Computed example of a mutant assay.
Amino acid sequence: MLFTLSLEEGKTKPPSRLTEASLGGKGGLMDRLGLGTPATRSSILKTLIDREYVKVEKTKLYPTEKGILLYDLTQNILLGSPEMTAKWEEYLKRIEAGEGSQKTFLNNINSFISKTLWI
């Protein structure tokens, strides 16, 4: 059995920049990752912009130096992960359904933060 290999030269394009809609809107990245609720996603995005972690240029979102620094500081710890936020959101839904307690939730967060930040 013979195989023929060929090499094709080309250029790739960077992925499209996120917009406010593609990040926080229905079917957007936050929705797909289970981050926030439909009612809170726009305020989360507004907070990121107001605190200057991201900026908007011609409807596209770009990280600021401050945002990149925050990412660099948190990227390798669970505190900075969307997965952790999604877990917290899931437990909040359990509390809402009467299947979890606020006290347990807050105790777990306090314990997690203390261990993570060595407080």
Rank of each mutant, 00 (worst) to 15 (best):
I49R: 05
D50N: 10
L48E: 01
L48C: 05
K55W: 03
I49P: 11
K58T: 11
Y53I: 00
G24W: 04
K11P: 07
L61S: 01
G67I: 06
G28F: 00
G27T: 05
T74G: 06
S22Y: 02
W118S: 08
S6N: 11
K87M: 11
G24K: 00
F3C: 10
L70I: 10
I77H: 05
R32S: 05
I44Y: 01
Y62M: 05
E57Q: 08
E8F: 08
Y71L: 15
L48N: 02
Q102W: 10
L61R: 00
I119C: 14
L70D: 04
G25F: 01
K66Y: 07
L61H: 01
N110Q: 15
L2N: 13
L92N: 02
L117W: 11
E89Y: 01
L70G: 04
G28A: 00
Y62K: 08
M84I: 09
L48K: 07
I77R: 07
K13Q: 12
L5Y: 12
T64A: 02
S6Q: 15
K87T: 07
S42G: 15
K93Q: 05
L18K: 14
K66E: 03
L78H: 12
E65P: 11
G24L: 01
K60S: 04
V56A: 06
S111F: 14
L79G: 07
G10V: 05
M84T: 10
M30N: 01
E57N: 08
I49F: 08
K58Y: 08
K58A: 13
T4I: 15
L45G: 00
L70Q: 08
G34A: 08
S6P: 06
L33K: 07
T4E: 13
K115M: 06
T85N: 04
L29K: 06
D50E: 10
S114P: 08
R17N: 15
S42L: 15
W88C: 05
I109H: 06
A86L: 04
T59Q: 11
G98P: 04
G34Y: 00
K93G: 02
E96R: 03
L70R: 09
L92H: 03
L5I: 11
L79K: 07
L69K: 15
S114H: 02
S6W: 13
Y53V: 01
Y71W: 15
A39F: 13
P82Q: 10
E96N: 12
T74Q: 11
M84R: 05
I95D: 01
R32H: 06
A97T: 02
K115S: 07
R17W: 14
L92F: 04
L2T: 13
